[in-house]
Amino acid sequence: MSLAATARTPDAGTAAAPALPGGLPIQLVAATKSFGDREVLRELSLDVAPGSFLAVVGRSGGGKSTLMRLVAGLDQPTRGRVAIDGEAVTRRHPDVRLLFQEARLVPWQTVEGNVGIARGPDWRASAGRVLADVGLAGREGDWPSVLSGGQRQRVALARALVGAPRILLLDEPFGALDALTRLEMHKLLERIWLSRGFTTILITHDVAEAVALADRVVVLREGRIALDVDVPLARPRRELADPQAVALQAEILDAV
């Protein structure tokens, strides 16, 4: 609806953004989460450095999503502690955003209305900026129903970027996309993460995706960390069969 946003080029949006606050550290100390008798996370300790990109890999039921819900403040640990920037997480943290497996766009809100769903101060302008950032300038007035799967996830990503989050949690957000769109989304996410510097945790069962995006990969198996490796590959990453990446993938696959 706002015509000013239509004229904006993708780069102008980034340039106009205010100085970014950078990422926050996340700390789990012997965190255990049980549902009834079943322990989904067992005495899990993990330090995530501010501004780093962590991928958590594991089979279904390995505790990945539970870990994410704890960090997002949607659940509390049964025992142990989950902290963001030194403070225990007891409820939703205002600097944390969560990207779901599905885009979860509100069908009766336009793209702009979805991005600015929290209706913060000056939300139309910020929506225009982040939409330009994810390559959807000019689509503010569209209904979600006319967007493709990849575009929907872009809108969801834009929505997560509003208000300059300092932690971004991604719960298999690219799982349902086709291979080409997924590669595009990887590039987009990497670019945005590099420019904004928030701490990122990506939950995925795709080992190649984890190695392609993260600084560090943690394998969760039966609620414990089965492997914790760094990914010392140059950025921006290229999605090619780098021998080092292939070796890492093999190592991670063995641990899953």
Binding site: R92, R97, F100, E102, R104, I117, A118
Partner: peptide
């Protein structure tokens, strides 16, 4: 319900 959860996560 997913939309309701999203709304809560995004601070509505």
């Amino acid at each position: 319900g997913q939309l309701v959860e999203m709304a809560e996560v995004y601070g509505l």
